[in-house]
């Protein structure tokens, strides 16, 4: 199987673990006419079963931990986890709060970090490109 087909048809599932909505509306903005990621074959799907990429936002509230793990398990391999935003990457301004279990990489393995509070839509698209690179590496290692 060619990896090219894989790269050009990434289906994305958006998982919010307690974010402030800032990253989430930028992810949505990526879909809208101005940025239109569908032209790269990227599209948001409604269930993790269909997803290739998990877009995770938010600093992971304690109540969300089992759900994050379950969603990760529900996503079929090969899969890539992308963290959008500072909170998800390293806790951000909420790091010291008593109700956090994150950042996300302490709960599930993360491949791509897109920092920013929130990152610009362009940065999110670039993050997806980074995910492609990661997939290529996986192919070279014979994982795919």
């Amino acid at each position: 199987m060619s990896l090219k087909a894989f790269k050009r048809a990434l289906w994305v599932y958006h998982l919010n673990t307690g974010s402030c909505n800032g990253c989430d509306i930028e992810i949505l903005a990526v879909l809208t006419p101005r940025y239109d990621v569908e032209r790269f074959g990227i599209r948001l799907v409604g269930t993790p079963r269909h997803a290739d990429v998990l877009l995770v936002t938010g600093p992971v509230i304690k109540q969300m931990v089992p759900r994050v793990k379950r969603i990760y398990a529900q996503t079929p391999d090969p899969k890539v986890v992308m963290v959008i935003g500072n909170c998800g990457s390293e806790g951000g301004v909420f790091y010291e709060s008593y109700n956090l279990a994150g950042p996300i990489d302490q709960i599930i393995p993360v491949t791509v970090y897109v920092p920013g509070c929130p990152p610009r839509p362009e940065a999110i698209i670039e993050g997806v490109a980074k995910a492609w690179v990661k997939l290529e590496q996986l192919e070279q290692q014979g994982v795919l």
Binding site: G18, S19, I61, Q63, V93, E96, S97, Y98, N99, L100
Partner: peptide, 15 residues
Amino acid sequence: LGHVHRGIEWLGMHR
């Protein structure tokens, strides 16, 4: 409620 309770006020009062 509570799935996004980040304890913001506590952070403001203590940190």
